[in-house]
Amino acid sequence: NKASVVANQLIPINTALTLIMMKAEVVTPMGIPAEEIPKLVGMQVNRAVPLGTTLMPDMVKNYE
């Protein structure tokens, strides 16, 4: 099973992601793959992301 990106803390709306906000975890359903973490740094979330939430592509602005 591949790990996904999971919020390590509450991430407020429009916050630019940093490494300490994210962790890799095997979850179902899968979200953004953990190997994308370096690419996510500096990208903004378009909603508040609660602690423990799996990051999905539609939660990150301009994620492709």
Rank of each mutant, 00 (worst) to 15 (best):
N1A: 13
N1R: 04
K2M: 12
K2G: 08
K2L: 07
K2W: 05
K2A: 09
A3M: 14
A3R: 14
A3P: 09
S4H: 02
S4P: 00
S4D: 00
V5F: 01
V5K: 00
V5Y: 01
V6I: 12
A7L: 03
A7H: 01
A7K: 01
A7T: 12
N8R: 07
N8L: 13
N8K: 09
Q9M: 12
Q9T: 13
Q9P: 00
Q9I: 11
L10V: 15
I11F: 01
P12L: 13
P12Y: 11
I13C: 03
N14Y: 09
N14R: 14
N14A: 10
T15A: 06
T15K: 11
T15S: 09
T15C: 03
T15G: 15
A16D: 04
A16M: 12
A16K: 13
L17A: 01
L17W: 01
L17S: 00
L17H: 00
T18Q: 05
T18A: 10
T18I: 04
L19K: 04
L19Y: 06
L19D: 08
L19I: 09
I20G: 14
I20L: 05
I20D: 09
I20K: 04
I20M: 11
M21D: 06
M21K: 12
M21F: 08
M22C: 02
M22A: 02
K23I: 07
K23S: 12
A24E: 14
A24L: 04
A24K: 05
A24Q: 06
E25P: 02
E25V: 13
V26P: 06
V26M: 13
V26R: 05
V26E: 12
V27F: 03
V27M: 07
V27H: 15
V27P: 05
P29K: 14
P29E: 09
M30W: 08
M30S: 08
M30Y: 11
G31M: 03
G31W: 02
G31H: 02
G31A: 04
I32V: 15
I32H: 01
I32L: 13
I32P: 00
I32M: 05
P33C: 03
P33L: 12
A34V: 12
A34N: 05
A34G: 09
A34F: 15
A34W: 10
E35Y: 15
E36T: 06
E36R: 13
E36P: 01
E36G: 15
I37E: 04
I37R: 07
I37N: 02
I37H: 03
I37Q: 10
I37K: 07
P38E: 09
P38K: 12
P38W: 13
P38N: 07
K39E: 09
K39W: 08
L40P: 00
L40Q: 01
L40M: 10
L40R: 00
V41W: 05
V41T: 08
V41A: 09
V41M: 13
G42Q: 11
G42N: 12
G42Y: 15
M43F: 10
M43Y: 07
M43Q: 11
Q44P: 10
Q44T: 13
V45T: 05
V45C: 02
V45P: 04
V45Y: 00
N46E: 06
N46M: 11
N46D: 05
N46L: 14
N46A: 09
N46K: 10
N46Q: 12
R47P: 02
R47E: 15
R47N: 15
R47S: 08
R47Q: 04
A48R: 11
A48Y: 13
A48C: 03
A48M: 13
A48T: 06
V49P: 01
V49G: 01
V49M: 06
P50W: 10
L51A: 04
L51T: 14
G52E: 13
G52S: 12
T53L: 07
T53E: 08
T53Y: 05
T53G: 12
T54M: 04
T54D: 01
L55F: 07
L55A: 01
L55M: 13
L55D: 00
M56R: 10
M56K: 14
P57E: 12
P57V: 07
P57K: 06
P57R: 05
P57M: 15
D58K: 14
D58F: 11
D58I: 05
D58L: 10
M59G: 04
M59C: 02
V60Y: 02
V60D: 00
V60H: 00
V60E: 00
K61N: 06
K61I: 06
K61Q: 13
N62W: 05
N62D: 14
N62E: 10
Y63R: 02
E64K: 02
E64W: 07
E64V: 09
